[in-house]
């Protein structure tokens, strides 16, 4: 197979784009595609200071690499989740990446507050991903304020968005569909814009870019992801994609272009007030994270209290 651009031997074949690329042309193609998405969706411009949420996986490191190489001002932010050796390796890969490129990296460790994801899971008796997601949203928002960033960029890719969209459509979760957009505008002065510059690039594309660019990333998956519903949706969509290339791209792209506006109009609700715990935006007295933290502290306190005598 030859490169569609230069006719050298191809290393990447993208059926959804009916194209194949050699190493050099693919790296150019990928970078241009990400930059074009940022510009077309008006995610941010060259003056923005972008907080890149980096996990140490292929998507977030590929995103950070492109943004830094294209001259955007970036601050990497890594939340150490405390999920055993997996989290240790994730931090290690992230730090190596930042050090090798001279990029600014900030980290926060959940275990320092007694809130490592396994501890939160035990204390709340709920799936790890629920507490993990709540903590991530809180710390990404807080970090953007703390490090003076006006945009948060995450590495959500086309497969993530397609799987999420399928799940939302299967249950017609209109409130979730209203929030599924590549650009989320802030609804409070302490929020900043959130963007997903990789929402049109597939996992195969980001993994290929990371490999061909020499990015060392954590290949293993979060142990808590095993059996997750989103992985079932991804497998179904992969089957569909193999017989009908481009399905995922059109599913997500057409939703964003033509479908999401209708849901957004119906779901516009009240603007958030201020959390009594952390001062961040909240829809109740306490924000989701402070409520979670209070619940965990309560349960941990009662578990460690000596049993009362009758």
């Amino acid at each position: 197979m030859k490169c569609t651009r230069c006719r050298k031997p191809a290393e990447v074949k993208l059926r959804a784009h009916n194209s194949a690329f050699c190493r050099a042309c693919y790296v150019v193609f990928f970078r241009r595609r990400v930059v074009r998405t940022i510009e077309k969706q008006k995610m941010f411009d060259g003056d923005a200071r972008v907080l890149v949420a980096v996990s140490g996986g292929k998507d977030s490191l590929a995103l950070w690499d492109v943004l830094a190489e294209e001259g955007y001002q970036t601050v990497g932010f890594h939340l150490a989740l405390g999920i055993g050796a997996y989290s240790g390796r994730s931090l290690e890969k992230t730090e190596e990446f930042a050090r090798a490129r001279g990029l600014e990296l900030r980290t926060h460790t959940l275990a320092d507050e007694g809130l490592a994801v396994p501890d939160m899971m035990v204390a709340t008796n709920r799936p790890a991903c629920a507490a993990c997601g709540t903590a991530k949203r809180h710390y990404f928002d807080s970090a953007a304020l703390e490090y003076d960033c006006n945009v948060i960029a995450t590495g959500h890719n086309l497969d993530d968005e397609a799987a999420r969209l399928l799940g939302n459509v299967l249950r017609w979760q209109t409130d979730h569909l209203a929030r599924q957009r590549p650009v989320m505008q802030p609804t409070h002065e302490k929020f900043v814009r959130k963007v997903k510059p990789l929402y049109l690039t597939s996992e195969l594309e980001t993994a290929s870019f990371a490999f061909l660019s020499g990015i060392e990333y954590v290949v293993e998956e979060c142990p808590n992801a095993a059996g997750a519903t989103q992985l079932t949706y991804k497998a179904l969509l992969d089957q569909l994609e193999s017989t009908s290339p481009g399905s995922k791209l059109s599913f997500v792209n057409e939703f964003v272009t033509r479908g999401s506006a209708g849901f957004l109009a119906k779901e516009r609700g009240a603007a958030p007030s201020t959390c009594g715990g952390c001062g961040m935006p909240s829809f109740g007295e306490l924000c989701s994270f402070c409520s979670l933290r209070a619940e965990i502290q309560r349960k941990q306190a009662s578990a460690s209290a000596p049993a009362s005598r009758s």
């Binding site: 197979m1 990447v12 292929k58 998956e221 992985l231």
Partner: peptide, 21 residues
């Protein structure tokens, strides 16, 4: 790519690209 020829001496890594949960 999928059409690439393989030979007996090849050692191939198949690395999953699927992530998330």
């Amino acid at each position: 790519t999928e059409d690439a020829r393989l030979s007996t001496s090849d050692e191939i890594e198949l690395r999953s690209v699927v992530s998330g949960g």
